[in-house]
């Protein structure tokens, strides 16, 4: 496992996920992927589900990936990586792998659409079969590469093109699916949440390093603020991540062996959810008098969930 202590030392890592990709300026996908790939010095095999990340990092004739990389469909990043992992294991057993002296890590990246929704069956299957891989969900709470449709990761109240705000609509009506807990319920040895907040670079890098060195299926759900569809200024990506954590809209925690929950960061003063919502155009309609009750409901749900995490941590279950 790569020892990640100081940023000064971590920054000596030569990037194997490079710039020159076409993700929007300030897109958090780039920050997250860099941290995950930099969290190991071993050889890496990556598969990416279709979505902003895949489309923007593989425009012919260029690639942003300086690792073995598998172009796969929208729904099967986990199936792809589990196949690659199984083949590699089989070849190694027969002494036929190309560089047997090297450690190889298998990583899949999928958007929330490609993970919570359409790719869920392949992720669940690969996890249940127990392949040795890390799956990272880049959760920007919608199908952003196709113009911002809702997914089961879209939070209540968010405006998207398929959950539009209007005279009678306050945006998305369904609650965000709790995928992290669903993955933990598979009995994965390691599951965690992460986001590129200013205080949390180490949290994310260490979680990636830990997941990569854990044998078996591991999962990281990374909140990835999307400047284009969440409607905030590109320079504010890190601040939005910070606010998601400080308001407990997106708590940072990890679960080991399917049950042992640890909260990795507890805000000193939990901020009201307004602080997070008001910085993003996708929630601006909630501040109209007739929609204020939605903010209250969101706050109640956030408080309830935070309380649940605290109690679970305390009980050690």
């Amino acid at each position: 496992m790569k020892n990640i202590t100081t940023l000064k030392e971590f920054a000596c890592t030569p990037d194997r996920f490079n710039g020159g990709h076409r993700l929007c300026p300030g897109c958090a996908h780039g920050m997250i992927v860099r941290e995950v790939i930099n969290a190991t010095d071993d050889d890496v095999v990556v598969s990416t589900a279709t979505g902003c990340l895949e489309v923007c990092t593989a425009i012919y004739p260029y690639t942003s990936w300086d690792v073995s990389w598998l172009h796969i469909g929208f729904e099967n990043a986990a199936a792809g990586i589990s196949g690659a992992e199984a083949m590699y294991k089989a070849l190694s057993r027969k002494n036929k792998s190309f560089n047997p002296d090297k450690n190889v890590k298998f990583v899949a990246f999928g958007g929330d659409g490609g993970t919570y929704d359409i790719g869920f069956q392949s992720l669940s299957g690969a996890t249940e079969r127990g392949h040795d891989f890390l799956y990272v969900c880049l959760d920007n709470e919608g199908y952003m590469n196709t113009g911002g449709q809702r997914s089961s990761a879209t939070p209540i109240g968010a405006h998207t093109t398929t959950s539009p705000r209007g005279r009678v609509s306050y945006g998305e009506k369904n609650r965000k699916k709790d995928l992290t807990m669903i993955m933990a319920a598979h009995g994965c040895p390691y599951v965690a949440t992460a986001t590129p907040g200013s205080k949390h670079w180490k949290d994310m890098a260490q979680k990636a390093a830990k997941a990569l060195s854990t044998v078996g299926p591991t999962f990281i759900n990374a909140l990835s603020p999307c400047t284009t569809e969440w409607k905030f200024k590109p320079e504010d990506t890190v601040e939005i991540s910070d606010l998601a954590v400080e308001t407990c809209m997106f708590p940072l925690y990890e679960i080991e062996d399917g049950h042992k929950l640890t909260i990795n960061y507890k805000p000193k003063n939990k901020l009201p959810v307004e602080e997070y919502l008001s910085k993003q155009g996708r929630f601006s309609h909630l501040f109209k008098p007739e929609n204020r009750w939605v903010i209250e409901e969101i706050q109640k749900e956030v408080d309830r969930y935070w309380e649940y995490l605290l109690r679970r941590e305390e009980a050690g279950v």
Binding site: L7, A11, C12, D15, H21, P25, G26, M31, R34
Partner: peptide, 16 residues
């Protein structure tokens, strides 16, 4: 040399 810029730049721009 805190390297915050290096870790948060989404486009791997900082030369070290």
């Amino acid at each position: 040399d805190c390297d915050f810029c290096w870790v948060f730049c989404p486009d791997s721009c900082f030369e070290v």
